[in-house]
Design a protein around this nucleic acid. Structure first.
Lengths: 156, 156
DNA sequence: TACTACAAATATCAAAGAAAGTCAAAATGG
DNA sequence: CCATTTTGACTTTCTTTGATATTTGTAGTA
């Protein structure tokens, strides 16, 4: 059975389908719709709608409160430079890697097949090292691939 | 008496009979069906559904978790399975890597952009390790990417 | 106006639950 | 005796729930 998280994620993404850059939801309402605890919504947002995934969340409590999900659509060039020069440090986790790669795919910077290749290259199968060095190597592999992609956009 | 392993293997293969490229199972469910320990399923998968048998396994833990068995198929003109199982050993040099990637590109198995990404992923920049371990990691990164390519026929 | 009380939201955090993974020991069969 | 199979205890990852805290808006009151 598909976990609730996936359904909630899909639902929110469907709200953003029609070219809308952002959408406001009410946490309690959503939770009621999915018959789950409100904190479940928070969980989905914090695991699937992070800046690495290409989203930012704003919210307000109290009467008339809301959660606003904003989808970031950055120009491929600038986003890539940010990723290469600032986001990726000396190390990066598999989760963060995967989020970044998916986001590039979502934003049309890379194709589906390319995303799959990149996921494979940074997977823990591929990077078979002691935990300590794993994230270090992942960072350099990802960076190297991003530099290659950046090369495609040089004329921008 | 036929060992359980064989029955489980046969059962999973029967699930893949109808031209399906992949099938999802639940480890606990399967174990219950065969009245064995869940780790027995893991054992079968790790001995009979490996890349050199022409399969790859993906999985997800936690609620709604699953094990996905993907059957690899040789796309015409590509020697992917040979490359994965025989050509790439425990280690591979950068030169050999690059040759393989270029050859796949020449044969139209992968696109130019994909080849560039793969070159980047196995480059010396990306794999910044002592010489001894370099070729080892290159092998696993390349293999992982090739497995992904070999699994591409899925969404049918 | 300022203050207070209350209601209406969201945030946080930890515990419980639901899977799969790992590893080594024991059992089995040739 | 050796290789393979089977089992079980323990670990890791991800999801779900619930209790408690915090923030915000609103109504009432002196």
């Amino acid at each position: 059975m598909r976990p609730l998280t996936d359904s909630i994620e899909a639902f929110i993404k469907s709200l953003l389908e029609d070219g809308q850059a952002q959408v406001d939801v009410q946490r309690n309402e959503l939770a009621q719709y999915f018959r789950c605890a409100p904190s479940q919504i928070t969980y989905v947002l914090s695991t699937r709608f992070t800046p690495d995934h290409g989203y930012v969340i704003e919210s307000r409590r109290g009467g008339g409160g809301y959660i606003r999900i904003v989808r970031l659509r950055e120009s491929p060039g600038s986003n890539l430079l940010y990723l290469i020069n600032e986001r990726i440090g000396k190390t990066i986790s598999l989760q963060d890697c995967d989020a970044i790669i998916s986001q590039l795919n979502d934003n049309g910077v890379i194709a589906e097949n390319e995303a799959a290749l990149m996921h494979a290259a940074v997977s823990s199968d591929a990077i078979n090292l002691p935990v300590a060095r794993k994230d270090e190597l992942r960072a350099s592999v990802l960076r190297s691939m991003l530099l290659t992609i950046a090369g495609r956009h040089r004329d921008m």
